[in-house]
């Protein structure tokens, strides 16, 4: 029970941190006109949670962050894109986690970001029924690789600094 409480607290802290990063990032004006292209800094927390916590725990951090984030930002229409992207990314990362170890976690972050953007495009295709949306895909692919590498490297730094054995005691 004590372990549970400790984990719950850690997960809540992670979720809160992800939300704060998400809200702050919203305030930074994006130089790109294409919706969906941004750094996605809050995914640093997602990547970290995927690698350091059980699947279900990381999943709750992600879902709570997406739901509360879209409520706080007042942009509920973006929710469906965030959800499809986030879920696809999450499932992909669970798979990559099996054969990419912690010291190379930025690689799985890149793949995760690419999957995230793929999910968003798929959702947009289904919703808008305009195949021309696919023209966005190269941009999203490029942006996903770059931002995925960046957030992945940030998560890498965090993982290197926080020793799992200490926090598990």
């Amino acid at each position: 029970m004590r372990g549970n409480l400790r984990r719950l607290t850690e997960l809540s802290l992670l979720t809160a941190a992800a939300l704060i990063i998400f809200i702050i990032e919203l305030q930074i004006p994006s130089p790109f006109v294409i919706p969906g292209i941004k750094l996605g800094l809050s995914n640093i927390i997602t990547v970290y949670a995927v690698y350091r916590y059980r699947a279900f725990e990381a999943f709750s951090v992600l879902i709570v962050r997406i739901l509360l984030g879209s409520i706080f930002s007042g942009n509920l229409t973006a929710l469906i894109y965030s959800l499809t992207g986030g879920l696809l990314c999450f499932l992909g990362m669970l798979v990559f986690k099996r054969f990419i170890d912690e010291r190379h976690l930025w690689i799985s972050s890149v793949f995760g970001a690419v999957l995230h953007n793929t999910g968003q495009i798929a959702a947009a295709l289904l919703l808008l029924q305009t195949p021309q949306i696919l023209m966005y895909y190269p941009f999203l692919l490029l942006a996903g690789c770059l931002s995925g590498a960046f957030t992945g490297l940030c998560a890498q730094i965090i993982v290197n600094r926080i020793d799992i054995r200490k926090s598990d005691s």
Binding site: I100, V110, Y137, C145
Partner: peptide, 25 residues
């Protein structure tokens, strides 16, 4: 070795994205 291949895949994806963007633009 495994990671080299994965990194190469990342680079290929990035290049694909860049080339695609230029073509589309």
């Amino acid at each position: 070795m495994k990671y080299k291949i994965l990194i190469i895949i990342c680079v290929i994806l990035t290049v694909l994205g860049a080339v695609g963007s230029i073509l589309v633009l």
